[in-house]
Design a protein around this nucleic acid. Structure first.
Length: 125
RNA sequence: AAGGCGGGACGAUCUGCCGCGCCGGCCAUGCCGGUGAGGAAAGUCCGGACAGGACAGGGCACCCGGCUGCGGAAAGCGCAGAGGGGAGUAAUCUUCUUGGUACCGUAACAGAAAACAACCGCCAUCACGCGAUGGCAAGGGUGAAAACGCGGGGUAAGAGCCCACGACGGCGCGCGGCGACGCGCUCCGGGUACGGACACGGGCCUGCAAGACCAAAUAUACCGGCAAAUGAGGACUGCCCGUCCGAUGCCGGGGGGUAGGUUGCGAAGAUAAAUGGCAGAUUCAAAAACAGAAACCGGCUUACGGUCCCGCCUUUUUU
RNA sequence: UGAGAUAUGGUGUAAUGGUAGCACUACAGAUUCUGGCUCUGUCAGUGAGGGUUCGAGUCCUUCUAUCUCAA
């Protein structure tokens, strides 16, 4: 099953800089689903949503495993990001102690994004 | 054939769809082209470049190094070799190594004694005897280590005390080797081991989060202009009046410098940080092990599934 | 990423290269009608591997773990 084109994730859709992170962590709301914990803050002043990934060094002290998990989270976000309303900053934190396969991470990501999308639809109505 | 030893190479490849960092191009908010992790990128154990600080020159102190030759910018570096010790039937592996010891220290326990040795013992003299005095260092036991080994001579008893052979150390000569050193000859020597001090050689301190550049906001050295005890400006108070406080205030320039950014930066090169996901093919099956560049370079060390190549050793069988 | 420090019974700490000590804890016993306090005794340790040495907690070396500093 080859994914349809159009699911891109260019650099401007990533959160960068000390100030953006400080604003998100200070003002955001937290939640968790399965192996993922997230922190979300609406209204970044842009036309699109932005994301960031964090894998704690305490759980995986080998850089190879951390990079692998970050790539899997990023990939699952890229394929399902149209569920999210525009103008949202979101940070994902990996909380499992084991290296889970892509399918599990993708499922958790789908649940998070769809629940956020539903909430924002109810609010706008 | 089985088992082992040493050395070297590799660290999947290809196709399709979706996607990422950097560079370049263009009719430019996209499309095209190029390029994109390792043998250890790791640990941070050495060394070097580079950068900042310190510094006239020299010495002391402190730290580090240690056989030889060659390579190397240097290295607790590599290659080849020398000598001593250890492991293995063997191939082979492993570890140590400067000079000088005049000076200083240590040698626990045991033992008479751990460095100018004398308990038992042996011998001589005196003595009825217990023993005393003197000589000796063969035998005993202790210990990690006990003052060269063995044979003969010698003696009261003995001893490198003397002699032959051998081991060890040293001066000299000859031969071989670039050299460490080896072999041979002559002569000489006899209280050990380890460490320190002393010689010899080297070493300033701190590290890319080093350092360099640009530079909001706020405060402000300094400079210029304007207004000011004939009341600037502020508070009550949004404005006027009034009351109170009362000496600097406003505007512009400007230096250092914070947030932040750029650079340091490269034929990968970011700055919340790029190499991925899915599907398929290949070698019987399984893409699997250790592991992800963050300033750079040379080593060392450690981790590692599997595959291939070369040389050698042992055992068994066959010729 | 760079720089540095530490590791000793369950816990906190000592130990010039020469038998690893102390306190608390735990366990057992004594004392008490029972428990506590007290007294007596016991258990348990040098982070791991290799080297130097007659002999390493200590000296050298390689790993492992934990902690600190630099923004």
């Amino acid at each position: 099953m080859a994914p349809a084109p159009g699911h891109t994730l260019p650099k401007r859709e990533r959160i960068s800089g000390q100030t953006s992170f400080a604003r998100l962590v200070k003002g955001g709301r937290y939640g968790s689903e399965g192996c993922l914990k997230f922190c979300i803050l609406e209204g970044n002043g842009l036309e699109f949503s932005r994301m960031a990934v964090s894998v704690p060094k305490r759980a995986f002290h080998r850089a190879v495993k951390r990079n692998l998990l970050k790539r899997r989270i990023r990939e699952s976000y890229r394929l399902q990001k149209e569920l999210l309303p525009p103008g949202v900053d979101i940070l994902f934190i990996y909380i499992s102690k084991e290296v889970l396969p892509f399918a599990d991470i993708s499922a958790a990501m789908g649940k998070i994004l769809s629940s956020i999308g539903r909430k924002s639809n109810e609010q706008s109505r």
